[in-house]
């Protein structure tokens, strides 16, 4: 019986792990945060406690399972009441979304610019060489 209990416990932990993994990553989605705010979840003390509890995802042994690391930043911001309050505002969520996408594109854009500059320089070098 103990073995069975352990097995179900194990399965429960597994499920809980996956659910929390999914949920914590959902927090990277500003639209979802806006939705949660509008539903008043951020006013719920238990929910705020839960957000605090989710900080364990910052530990390396957990963080390595995250596919969207941005969620950790959002999680950090969500610890502040001011941020939670602002999220009710759809405009605010939209702004965050835009910034997030710009940040998302920043690296590849920068790399593209660098490559372009490099290519131009090489062309110039070649031209002056001949």
């Amino acid at each position: 019986a103990a073995a069975v209990a352990m097995e179900t416990d194990d399965a429960g932990n597994r499920l809980r792990f996956q659910l929390e993994l999914e949920f914590v990553q959902c927090l990277a989605n500003p639209n979802y945060l806006n939705f949660l705010a509008q539903r008043g979840y951020f006013k719920d003390k238990a929910f705020v406690n839960y957000l605090k509890y989710l900080l364990y995802w910052k530990e390396p042994e957990y963080a390595k399972y995250l596919k969207y690391p941005q969620c950790l930043h959002m999680l950090e911001l969500l610890q502040y009441e001011h941020f939670r309050k602002e999220l009710v505002n759809a405009q605010c969520a939209k702004f965050i979304d835009e910034q997030q996408i710009l940040h998302w594109q920043h690296y590849s854009r920068k790399r593209m610019r660098l490559q372009q500059a490099l290519a131009e320089q090489q062309q110039q070098n070649n031209a002056s060489g001949k």
């Binding site: 429960g12 932990n13 499920l15 809980r16 659910l19 929390e20 949920f23 979840y41 719920d44 238990a46 929910f47 406690n49 839960y50 605090k52 509890y53």
Partner: peptide
Amino acid sequence: PGDALAAGRLPDVL
């Protein structure tokens, strides 16, 4: 998994 959570109210939360 709510029962095991510090917040204790995951079902609601999720």
